[in-house]
Design a protein around this nucleic acid. Structure first.
Lengths: 238, 238
DNA sequence: ACCTGAACACCGTTCAAGT
DNA sequence: ACCTGAACACCGTTCAAGT
C-alpha cells in the first residue's frame, strides 16, 4: 500500500518518511476525528503509520500523553485564530465560542479537557479569560472564581458535546459515516427526542415541554446564551 | 440494612444470600467509593460477591449499565434529601449544592454524569431546576436554556471534581488511604500548586496570581459563587 | 431460573533483539 | 538512536455446562 521508491534512480531518500512525535500526534488526531475516541488504539496507530509499537513508545510516553498532547494541539491552534475584540464582553464571547467550535469539530477534545482541565493547552485560554474579567471591572478578589466559572461553563458544554458524539460514533465502524452523512445522526436524535417525549407529562411537565421543543434547539445558541447569563452575572460584581 | 425476617422460626431461607441486581449495584458502589473508577472491574465484583461472571451478567446488562444504575442510585438518593425552600433562589442554591456534595462524596459519579447527562437519575433534578427557574420569573422561551445552563454548571464542576479524584486515587491500590487519611492528597495538591506557580509570571500574570492563592481556595465556595453568578445573570432575564 | 468458570477478543505496554 | 514484533498482563464479555 505504501509503494515507496516507485520510480528508480533515487539515491538514498533520507531513509523512510521519518517517524516523529509530531507525525504520530497528527495521525492520532486524524484517527480521533474520523473514528472517535474509541478508534484510537495503539494497534490502529501502528497500522496507519506502518511501524511497530516500540517505535511509537519511543516518541511518546503513554497513550495518555498522546491524547493530552493531541488535545493541546487542537486547543492552542484554535485560540490563536480567535480575532481580538476591543470590548471585553465581546472578546470573552468570541473566546468562548472559539473553543466551543473547536470542540464541536473535534468532540474527543471535550472529553479529554474535562479529564485533564489543567493542561497547558488551556493556559492561554484561562489567562485571556482572567484578564478580560479584570477588564470588565470585577474586583480582584472575585476574579479567579469568576474566570473559573466561565471556563467551567465551556468545559461542561464540551463534555456534553463529547458525550453526544460518543453515542453517535462509538460502536460504529464509521464505515457509512462518509457515504450517508447524517442519517445516523438524525435517526439517533429522533430516537432520543422520542424517548424524552415519553416521560410522564404529569410528573415532569418541564422536561416534557423541553423535549417537545428539542427539534428547534441549537447547541451553539444555548451555549452562547449561557455565556451571556454568566457575563451578566459577572458584570454585577463590579 | 434490610434485615427482614430476622427472628427465628423462618422456614426455607430462600436459598443463599441471594444474589440480586440491587446487591450487585450496592457492592459496585462500595468498590467505586473506596477504590475509585479504576477499581471497579468485573473480576473485583466476582471476588467481592463470591460468584462468577455469568451470575453478574444475568442481573446486569453491561458494565455501562452497572455504572449508570449506580450513578442513578446515588443521585436520586441525595436529591430526595434536599430540604425544600420557599424562596426559589435559596431552593436552587440548595439543590445545586446538594448535588455538589453528592459528587464530592462519590467523585466517580461526576465522571459518569458528564458521560451520560440524560440519565433518569437527573430527571428530577432537571425538572426541579426548570420549575424554580420559572418561579424566578424567567420568560417561557428562555427557561430551557437557563435551566440547561445551571445543570451544565453543576455537571461541569462535577466532572472537574472527578478528574481531581482520579488523579488522587487511581493507580493507588487504596491501601494507605484509610491509615493516613489525606497525606497523599496534601502531597499531591502541594505538587500541583508548585507546578502551577512555576508558570511564567511575565507571560501568565493572571494564572500565576491565581496559583499563588490556590491554598485559600475552597471548591465548594467557588461552586456556590458560580451558582450565584448564574442566579444574578438569570434575574436580568425577567 | 440461576449460577460457574474456562475461553475469547481486544486492549496498553514491555523488552530482547535487530539495524 | 531508532525501530520491530512477539509476549505479557489485564480488561469486558460470552457460553457450554452444571444445579
Amino acid at each position: 500500500m505504501v509503494n515507496r521508491a516507485a520510480t528508480g534512480s533515487a539515491r538514498a531518500p533520507r531513509r523512510k518518511d521519518g517517524l516523529s512525535r509530531e507525525r504520530i500526534i497528527r495521525t492520532a488526531i486524524e484517527i480521533l476525528d474520523s473514528g472517535g475516541e474509541k478508534a484510537l488504539t495503539l494497534r490502529a496507530l501502528t497500522v496507519r503509520l506502518g511501524t511497530g509499537y516500540g517505535a511509537i513508545y519511543h516518541h511518546v510516553e503513554d497513550k495518555g500523553d498522546l491524547l493530552a498532547t493531541a488535545t493541546d494541539e487542537v486547543v492552542t491552534g484554535v485560540l490563536s485564530g480567535v480575532v481580538a475584540e476591543a470590548d471585553p464582553r465581546a472578546a470573552l464571547r468570541g473566546l468562548a465560542l472559539g473553543l466551543f467550535d473547536a470542540v464541536d469539530a473535534h468532540p474527543w477534545v471535550g472529553a479529554e479537557l474535562s479529564r485533564q482541565p489543567w493542561r497547558p493547552g488551556l493556559l492561554d485560554f484561562y489567562e485571556s479569560v482572567g484578564r478580560l474579567v479584570a477588564a470588565l471591572g470585577v474586583p480582584e478578589h472575585a476574579r479567579v472564581d469568576a474566570a473559573g466559572t466561565l471556563v467551567n461553563h465551556v468545559l461542561g458544554v464540551a463534555a456534553q458535546n463529547a458525550a453526544t458524539a460518543r453515542l453517535l460514533t462509538d460502536g460504529d465502524t464509521g464505515a457509512d459515516t462518509d457515504t450517508d452523512g447524517n442519517t445516523d445522526r438524525e435517526a439517533f436524535l429522533g430516537d432520543a427526542a422520542a424517548r424524552w417525549a415519553r416521560v410522564d407529562p404529569a410528573r415532569y411537565p418541564f422536561v416534557h415541554a423541553a423535549a417537545a421543543r428539542l427539534g428547534e434547539h441549537d447547541d451553539r445558541e444555548q451555549f452562547a446564551f449561557g455565556v451571556d447569563i454568566f457575563l451578566t452575572g459577572i458584570a454585577a460584581l463590579r
